[in-house]
């Protein structure tokens, strides 16, 4: 069992990180910590993808004149996916932070329960 996990170390770590991030995003009441959880969750996926795209003993997929042989490189597609994913998660993080800022200005709290309660009390 332990050997299985150590053989798939990156996958194991990323799944654990994903779980940590997911739980934080779901259960934590503090909005900033929720956003941190979201980032941990996304990063776990990038670790997973990057680890799966890596092939031992091969090099960065930058094509030069001397090295046109595809078997010299690691798989470039997962790296591309990670880059795309990072762009996506940066924009969602920015949006969440902006929203959090607005809510903090309005209610003076970062606690989601409290904010929801205050919002319910005030007349819409």
């Amino acid at each position: 069992m332990l050997e299985f996990f150590s053989r798939n170390l990156e996958a194991t770590v990323s799944v654990i990180l994903f779980g940590v991030g997911f739980t934080m995003l779901l259960l934590h009441q503090n909005l900033i910590k929720k956003i941190m959880g979201m980032n941990i969750m996304d990063t776990a996926v990038y670790l997973f993808l990057a680890a799966k795209g890596y092939i031992d003993g091969r090099m960065v997929p930058i094509v030069t004149e001397e090295t046109l042989d595809a078997s010299l490189y690691i798989n470039p597609v997962p790296s591309g996916l990670v880059l795309t994913g990072i762009v996506v998660s940066v924009s969602t993080t920015a949006l969440m932070l902006a929203l959090t800022k607005r809510l903090y200005e309005k209610y003076g709290s970062l606690n989601l329960d409290e904010i929801l309660m205050l919002a319910k009390e005030e007349k819409q």
């Binding site: 996926v45 309005k106 205050l118 819409q124």
Partner: peptide, 28 residues
């Protein structure tokens, strides 16, 4: 308004949970 902002953050949180699961599913 207050209520729409709090609705938006709730929507965003749940959506991010969903997208995260979808993304890890795709990756696997």
């Amino acid at each position: 308004r207050g209520r729409s902002l709090s609705a938006a953050i709730r929507y965003m949180i749940l959506s991010q949970l969903g997208s995260g699961l979808f993304l890890i599913g795709l990756s696997i």
